[in-house]
Simulated scan of single mutants.
Amino acid sequence: MSVKERKRSDYVFFLDYRTRWTDNDMYSHLTNTVYNVLIDSVVNTYLIKHCGLNPTTSPSIALMVASQITFISQTSFPAVLDIGLRVNKLGNSSVTYECGVFERGMEDVRAVGGYTHVFCDSVNRRPMTMEKTFREGLEKLLVKEGPKL
């Protein structure tokens, strides 16, 4: 199955987003930067709520080292979106996320994107083994089989 065929059931965690007029570009669809904001928002919401991340006090930080997005069909204001999240790969110090962007009430994905985080010491910015609470939370999103982004 290609990422263009993703369905809601392919994702584990969801965050909703109510589009704004300013999210549209001159072609009346969401700008590219909005998709990146959506992906960043669902990932960091999950890390904060389910992995114990506190951006100001955690001993480690997650640095983005790679990102990509595949646009499938347009969406625009005033859509309400559901952003799905899953983990495609979980290493000792890194994680690769995949996100699906869906319009509320629709089963077909509008865009699929994601990025790779490397967990680093918050002071020296050097890779480190992922904290236990992060790993435990991210394992709940891990997809063991199937095509990857």
Rank of each mutant, 00 (worst) to 15 (best):
C99L: 13
L85G: 01
P59A: 07
Q68T: 12
A111D: 10
M128Q: 15
V65D: 00
I69P: 04
F134H: 05
G84M: 04
I61P: 02
M130H: 07
V95L: 03
R104P: 05
A62Q: 09
A62T: 10
R125S: 15
L53F: 03
K144G: 14
S93N: 09
R104F: 07
V112H: 08
L53V: 14
F134N: 01
C51M: 08
S60A: 07
C120W: 00
R86N: 08
L138V: 02
M64F: 11
T56Y: 02
E98P: 04
N124M: 02
F102V: 02
L81T: 01
G114V: 12
F71E: 02
M128H: 08
Q74D: 13
A62I: 05
T75S: 10
V95D: 01
G52P: 04
R135Q: 11
T56D: 03
V118L: 01
V101G: 08
M128L: 08
F71C: 12
M128R: 13
C99W: 03
P59F: 02
M128T: 15
T56A: 09
L149N: 12
A66K: 08
L142C: 03
T70P: 02
E131W: 05
L141E: 09
I83E: 04
V109K: 05
V109M: 02
N88A: 10
C120Q: 01
L142F: 06
C51I: 04
T129R: 12
S76M: 07
Y97I: 03
G91T: 09
V143G: 08
E139C: 09
L141G: 13
T57D: 13
D121R: 02
S122W: 03
V65G: 00
R135L: 05
L85E: 00
V109P: 00
E98W: 09
A111E: 14
D82R: 12
L85A: 02
V80P: 03
P55L: 03
R104V: 08
C120M: 04
K49A: 14
N124W: 01
T129S: 14
T96C: 10
L141F: 05
D121M: 07
T70H: 09
I61Q: 13
V118H: 00
E131P: 06
Q74P: 02
K132R: 15
N54H: 09
F134K: 13
L47W: 00
C51F: 03
G113E: 13
G105L: 04
N124Q: 14
F119R: 08
C99H: 05
T56N: 06
S76V: 06
G52T: 04
N92K: 13
E145P: 10
A79E: 09
N124C: 08
K148M: 10
Y115E: 10
I48L: 01
G137N: 09
L141Q: 11
S58D: 03
E139V: 12
S94H: 11
P147Q: 12
